[in-house]
Amino acid sequence: MLRTKDVRSGGWRTVESFWNAKGTAFFRAPQGARIKVRYGVGFLGKDAQKQTLDGSRYAKLSVGFGSLARARMQIRVDRSTAVTYDVYGGGVAVSSPEIPF
């Protein structure tokens, strides 16, 4: 499902949250934005799958069994902007977005 969210610049912003669930998302723009998956809560949390978007290729984030505690897909942008991404819930095996964006 394609989603667009307004993201403020500054710190890490959560775009999707998972609790005891699986999910996959694809991001492409804005160029230079950083994405990651954050497992856990507070100082007990751990970052995974850190990537930087290049504006042309799709970057994939996946959440699996680590979401038993809590998992969040997060993005950090240099300037406030709208971010469009494609997200799939559940254990769907997806290797690329169904609809190019």
Rank of each mutant, 00 (worst) to 15 (best):
V94C: 11
P30R: 09
P30G: 09
Y58H: 12
K46I: 10
R72F: 03
K60V: 00
V63Q: 04
F43D: 14
P30A: 12
L44M: 08
R34L: 03
G89V: 01
S80Q: 06
Y39E: 11
R79V: 08
V41S: 15
F26I: 08
A29Q: 10
G91A: 15
A69M: 12
S96A: 15
G55D: 02
M1K: 08
R3I: 06
R3P: 00
S95Y: 03
G11I: 00
K60R: 14
E98A: 15
G10H: 04
L44Q: 09
M73G: 02
S95D: 13
A33D: 01
R8Y: 00
R28Q: 12
D78H: 09
R34K: 14
L53H: 06
R57A: 15
S9V: 07
D86I: 02
D78I: 00
L44V: 01
G55I: 00
S56H: 09
L68I: 05
R79Q: 12
Y85C: 05
V7A: 01
I99L: 15
G64V: 05
G11Q: 01
A33R: 05
L44D: 10
R79G: 11
A29V: 01
D47P: 04
Q74K: 12
E98C: 09
S67D: 11
R70G: 01
N20I: 04
G55K: 02
E16A: 05
T14G: 03
A93F: 04
T52C: 08
S17H: 07
L2R: 15
E98P: 00
V87H: 08
A71E: 02
G40L: 03
G42Y: 00
Q51K: 13
I99E: 14
Y39D: 07
S9W: 05
A33W: 00
V87K: 02
K36M: 15
G90K: 08
R79E: 14
F101P: 03
P100D: 12
K22V: 01
Y85A: 09
Q31H: 08
V41D: 14
R72A: 15
R3L: 11
D54S: 06
T4P: 07
G91R: 13
